[in-house]
Each structure stands twice: as structure tokens, then as C-alpha cells.
């Protein structure tokens, strides 16, 4: 059952949600803060379960996902559907009780966006699937902030923008070295549809607005110099790694060390960036 909730993806969602909550300029009761982060985790788990329920046929065709509970036959689809819907409703209702209506509404929108807009509508239809669908993963810091404050301001919108712009280079780096998997499953990821070099160009291009969004909270005076220095350094390294990807000419996964490095770094980048935000807010 736990595997159905995509626990590895959830860890990043929970962390960014927690950082959104901790970066808010109001004190949060520890119990209510814990409940809000739990709701974000459960909502992400529900979205992951419903995604796996809908995509069981695709997952069965890809090496990376073939061992998930549904394609491997360890769980029947109806149980997964009931679990996903039940968990989604529970997480939204609990968020409403523990935090406020707005946080619950945004959580509901994020689950519906991931399941209906990304999974059902975009993923099998367009190479822009993760560009638009990336919004679903960008909601957690916004939800954390709203759970604490009850309203939306410039900083949580920037945090949303950072993850939204980070998602394409992150997923395209991955999709470059698992391109054959996506091609076999018929998923129109950018490397499958537009080719390897076009994807590398897009990665490098997206890294620029992502970096701008990452340093914007400091440039706009919404955070201190600690965040500004860490965000600038991390983003500069992201740009350098994306340029090594752009310079690479390999077309087979064995020669895609720069892509694998960028993918691994992109995860570290997001953890470190949001960690810096909290350090900046609390340590100074």
C-alpha cells in the first residue's frame, strides 16, 4: 500500500511543504503544523495512488515502473482506486479542520490537477505534459504557507514558480536517459517527440528563468542574504551542469553521465534551496 503513494516523490513534496510552513512570518502551533504537513503528505500519496491506478498499463511497459504494485499484480485496481479517493478526501477534510478553508481548497486543486490535468489529460497527449503538469508539484510550499497564514503573498507565489520552472529540466534530464522506456510505452516525452538535442536546449533554456525565480525572493527583499548567497551559488552550478548537458552529444544512456549528474543535482538543489529559505528565516 505504501508503494502506491510514491514515497520518494512524497519526501520532496513534504519537505517543500514544511519549508513553506516554516518560512511563513507567523508562529504555527506545532500540532496544527504537523497536521498540515501530514495532510500535504497524504494528499501527495493520494495523487500518486490515483496516478498509478490510471497508468497501470503504461507502468507495465516501462522497466523503471514495472515493479509497482498494480503492474506487478500485487494489488487489484479497485483497491488502489478506493485507497486513492479515500485518502484524497481524508487529507482535504483534515486540512480544513486543522488549518483553514483556503489551504484545504488549494490541496484539493493540487490533487485534482495532478490526476485530471497531468495524468489523464496531458501525459499521453503532449510533449508539454510536465511543463504544465509540473504545477501540481509546485503547490506544497504554497499550501504550507497558506496553512500557517491563511492568505497568499509574493513569497509563496515565488516558491510555486521556482518548483514550476524546476520541474521541466529535472524531468527532461531523467527522460533523456530513460527515453527508450518512454518510447516503448508511447508517452510523448520531449526527447521521444523532439529529439535528444532539442531536449538539451530546452533544459538549458528553462534553467535561466528557474534561476531567476530562485534568486528573486532575495532580490525583492523578501529573504535575507543567506538565502540570496545560497540560491545564487546553487543556481549558478545548475546552469553550469545544464551547459555540460547541452554540450553532450551522446544519444545512448551509457554516454549520458552529464544528464544523470544534472538529474541527481536537481533533487539536491531543491532540498538545499528550500532548506536555505528556512535557515534564513529562523537562524538570523
Amino acid at each position: 500500500m505504501l508503494a502506491l503513494t510514491k514515497p520518494r516523490v512524497m519526501s520532496l513534496v513534504v519537505f517543500t511543504g514544511l519549508c513553506g510552513l516554516l518560512a511563513a512570518p507567523v508562529p504555527v502551533h506545532p500540532v496544527l503544523g504537523f497536521a498540515a504537513v501530514l495532510c500535504i503528505a497524504l494528499g501527495a500519496g493520494a495523487a500518486g495512488a490515483l496516478n498509478q491506478w490510471y497508468e497501470a498499463d503504461l507502468d507495465a511497459k516501462m522497466k523503471r515502473t514495472a515493479k509497482r504494485p498494480l503492474p506487478a499484480g500485487r494489488m487489484d485496481p479497485q483497491t488502489a482506486l478506493h485507497f486513492g479517493v479515500g485518502l484524497a478526501v481524508f487529507s482535504v477534510v483534515l486540512m480544513d479542520l486543522a488549518a483553514n478553508h483556503l489551504a484545504a481548497a488549494i490541496l484539493a486543486v493540487s490533487i485534482l490537477f495532478y490526476v485530471l490535468v497531468y495524468t489523464v489529460w496531458l501525459k499521453r497527449r503532449t510533449a508539454q505534459n510536465i511543463v504544465i503538469g509540473g504545477a501540481a508539484g509546485a503547490f506544497p510550499p504554497l499550501i504550507g504557507w497558506v496553512a500557517a497564514t491563511g492568505d497568499v503573498s509574493a513569497l509563496p507565489i515565488l516558491l510555486f514558480a521556482i518548483i514550476f520552472l524546476w520541474t521541466p529540466p529535472h524531468f527532461w534530464a531523467l527522460s533523456l536517459f530513460v527515453r527508450s522506456d518512454y518510447a516503448a510505452a508511447g508517452v510523448p516525452m520531449l526527447p521521444v517527440v523532439a529529439g535528444v538535442q532539442a531536449t538539451r536546449r530546452q533544459i538549458a533554456l528553462y534553467t535561466l528563468p528557474m534561476s531567476a525565480a530562485a534568486v528573486a525572493p532575495w532580490a525583492m527583499g523578501l529573504t535575507g542574504w543567506v538565502y540570496g548567497a545560497i540560491a545564487s551559488t546553487l543556481s549558478l552550478l545548475f546552469i553550469v551542469l545544464s551547459l555540460t548537458v547541452l554540450a553532450n552529444r551522446a544519444t545512448e544512456p551509457a554516454g549520458m553521465a552529464p544528464e544523470k549528474r544534472l538529474f541527481a543535482y536537481s533533487i539536491l538543489y531543491l532540498f538545499a534551496l528550500f532548506g536555505a529559505l528556512v535557515v534564513d528565516r529562523w537562524a538570523l
Partner: peptide, 13 residues
């Protein structure tokens, strides 16, 4: 336990 804790926390706020 969680519902109890949330109720107490909301009352204290």
C-alpha cells in the same frame, strides 16, 4: 489521538 490534539490546539489558540 490526532483529532483530540487538533481540538486542544485550536481551543488553546
Amino acid at each position: 489521538v490526532l483529532m483530540f490534539a487538533i481540538t486542544i490546539a485550536k481551543m488553546s489558540i
